[in-house]
């Protein structure tokens, strides 16, 4: 699926400041053709600024952005072979859906018949057949989202940039769109660069994740690498939940779902005993908060079991699941 050899976007030394704030602070990043890359980070971490510089809405202070081997960092947006799906969708309110989708093709001078055919096909691709004559105001948030997607994809860009496109949707729709987006990306084979602050979204959809913090990339890797082997405390806390344990004079980090809770049995080569302080039922799993003999409260996320608050329990885990041990 992903040919690591073919780099479509190559970012070197990229920096951008707004006033005294270094929004993007010396970023290097290679994006492979056909991959789904997510820029993940809290707000203000620089991920959106990087995206906007790839699109051409912002100029870098220093550094270069190569698109298909050509330096585009000083080119205006309309001379770059990328298209963007905006956070607020940015559909033109005075045009109907089909004119919105045809907008880019019209500028390219695509002849009318072909234009219409391609726009209809894009509309079908996002499963909105028959909505062409509606105005954006007559659509729901999810439908607008799809139109924005179709409007960008119809131009067959070499890279599609998505700026928190699911942020305004409710949870159910967001989860559905995550799967649809991923499928669509496989279908069209276009490189997707996706910006989000939602770690679950990033883990669900991405081939690779670049975790941003304070204008820098803290870690770049597959979802599994980033989740199971975070290289910094920031990454471990931002992506998933982490128990920070001080044990035998060492700092240990372990995910709550790798800690087994039981009355007295041990599962794994590490264990600690404690008292069950609280059990929070969250559906598929239950979060157990245990006051341990170490003086720390640890969280264990496990299927619901027969424990009552106040019980003495044993927490255990495999030491190989620990990370950032020092």
């Amino acid at each position: 699926m992903v040919e690591p050899a073919s780099i479509i976007v190559s970012i070197r030394n990229l920096s951008r400041s707004f006033g005294n704030v270094r929004a993007v602070d010396v970023v290097d990043l290679d994006i492979y053709a056909g991959e789904f890359l997510t820029l993940l980070g809290p707000s203000g971490s620089g991920k959106t600024t990087v995206l906007r510089m790839i699109a051409g809405f912002e100029r870098p202070d220093t550094g270069t952005i190569e698109l298909g081997g050509k330096d585009v960092s000083q080119l205006p947006p309309y001379e770059r072979d990328v298209n963007t799906v905006f956070q607020d969708y940015a559909l033109f309110p005075h045009m109907d859906v089909i004119s919105n989708i045809e907008y880019g093709l019209r500028i390219q001078g695509v002849e009318k018949g072909e234009r219409r055919a391609r726009a209809e096909k894009a509309l079908a691709q996002v499963r909105l057949e028959g909505y062409g004559s509606r105005r954006p105001a007559q659509l729901s948030g999810g439908q607008r989202q799809r139109v924005a997607l179709a409007r960008a994809l119809v131009n067959r860009p070499s890279v599609l940039l998505l700026d928190e496109p699911l942020g305004a949707l409710d949870l159910k729709l967001r989860e559905q769109m995550q799967i649809e987006l991923k499928e669509l990306q496989r279908e069209v084979g276009i490189t997707f660069v996706f910006v989000t602050h939602d770690q679950e979204e990033a883990l669900t959809m991405s081939d690779r994740i670049a975790v941003f913090n304070q204008g820098k990339i803290e870690q770049l890797g597959t979802p599994r690498e980033v989740y199971e082997n975070p290289l910094s405390p920031f990454v471990s806390e931002f992506v998933g939940q982490t128990n920070k344990i001080v044990m035998d004079g060492r700092n240990i980090n372990i995910r709550p779902e790798f800690i087994t809770i039981s009355k007295s049995r041990k599962f794994g080569d590490r264990s600690v005993i404690g008292k069950l302080h609280d059990a929070i039922f969250v559906g598929a799993t239950t979060r157990y908060l245990v006051h341990t003999e170490l003086g720390q409260t640890l969280m264990s996320t496990q299927p619901d079991g027969e424990f009552s608050v106040g019980d003495s329990v044993t927490l255990s885990w495999e030491s190989k699941k620990e990370f950032l041990v020092n």
């Binding site: 699109a55 809405f57 309309y78 990328v82 905006f86 880019g104 409007r151």
Partner: peptide, 24 residues
């Protein structure tokens, strides 16, 4: 974002003005 979107879709500034800004 409407101005950005127009440029992103390939429109030069005058085209954006005529097709997006002026009607709105």
């Amino acid at each position: 974002s409407l101005l950005d979107a127009s440029g992103d879709l390939g429109a030069r500034n005058f085209y954006t003005f005529r097709r997006v800004v002026l009607p709105l």
